[in-house]
């Protein structure tokens, strides 16, 4: 089975000049864990995920602490999160993005997702233009039906 057979043909995307606030709004209202970043002709040039946003709002060493109970002052986090709101997406997006072609096999996509620990990937055509997305659930569902 190919990506084409199970992908979600939703081409919701942002440009690299969009604000992080807009991205968070899209993610919150559409229950997405990430959004593709595209050029004016819809070529995917980046991807912004929950992890990208959290990483940008929290100092790097916090991830080593494993627990928020070690954070002495939440106000620093809140200040950084507030500053992030108006920043353009290009400052925090993953670039170049990980993308898959619509003709790729599901086994290949599953392998990519496991290796890079991602939940969602943009699907593109032969020119790198956005066609939709594929999620872990799409693949698990196909696997359960014996189609991987």
């Amino acid at each position: 089975m190919r990506v084409y057979d199970v992908m979600v043909r939703d081409v919701t995307a942002v440009t690299q000049e969009d604000s992080v606030e807009n991205v968070v709004r899209i993610m919150a209202t559409q229950f997405l864990s990430g959004v593709p970043v595209v050029t004016e002709d819809m070529r995917v040039i980046g991807f912004v995920s929950e992890s990208d946003i959290i990483r940008a709002a929290i100092p790097g060493y916090f991830s080593l602490l494993q627990s928020t109970t070690f954070i002495p002052d939440m106000s620093q986090f809140l200040k950084m999160a507030a500053k992030l709101r108006d920043k353009p997406v290009r400052e925090i997006m993953t670039h170049p993005p990980l993308v898959v072609n619509e003709n790729a096999s599901l086994a290949h996509v599953a392998d990519l997702m496991i290796k890079h620990n991602v939940k969602i990937l943009p699907v593109v055509d032969e020119h790198g233009r956005l066609l939709g997305v594929i999620t872990r659930t799409n693949i698990v569902r196909a696997a359960m039906e014996g189609y991987l």
Partner: peptide
Amino acid sequence: ISTSFVHI
């Protein structure tokens, strides 16, 4: 059919 709706 592809889609892209703004959600409110």
